[in-house]
Amino acid sequence: MLELRLVQGSLLKKVLDAMRELVNDANFDCSATGFSLQAMDSSHVALVALLLRSEGFEHYRCDRNLSMGMNLNNMSKMLRCAGNDDIITIKADDGTDSVTFMFESPNQDKIADFEMKLMDIDSEHLGIPDAEYQAIVRMPSSEFARICKDLSSIGDTVVISVTKEGVKFSTAGDIGTANIVCRQNKTVDKPEEATIIEMQEPVSLTFALRYLNSFTKATPLSDTVTISLSSELPVVVEYKIAEMGYIRYYLAPKIEE
């Protein structure tokens, strides 16, 4: 028996919007720790890892570990039927092939349930090693989204370089080149507007902008984004989900031939 009640139902809608461009089908894993997912895109270039901790739910019952295969577009179709202020409850019985999403309006005058068929999904679960990153950049998520969008109109790839001067995003395409440098800036009115660069040593890596743009679909989940870089490792782009957990994207770099 599984029953997860999330008062801030709109959060689940945002989580789906943040993943469905990248991943079609995925297994949602439910355990005492929380509601989680790990999935790669079809070309195995990017990986998304989601964790919504059990403490973040108003009610969390998960009698035994359960893995539920869902098509994210179908799940999104169902969640779109929930009002933005609705409370969403996810329910499933052991051994059944469906999941139920229950939507309650804030004043309890409308209750809907949508039952969705589950799928069998063969997915590889990867072990993500703990790593020391050479550079960690924290910046406003909207700023990062703007940079990725702007640069993708010029080129297909971005070189992200961190030096003590700041973080530089560079691209080149048929029409020309572009460089955007963000310097560390802690002297802002609000902490979420700061750009903070923790650098152990300079690092420079190349990534496909198409994937980074997909990651920025998570912008509504968090005011800030953390970008962790090390040479010879996938970049980690993390959006913290307040009081609940995170959505992390890993993107394999482009390597000189």
Partner: peptide, 14 residues
């Protein structure tokens, strides 16, 4: 822009 690597080249299967 170089050759695109894959996630599975970095992270081992569980």
């Amino acid at each position: 822009g170089g050759k695109q690597s894959t996630i599975t080249a970095f992270f081992g299967q569980f």
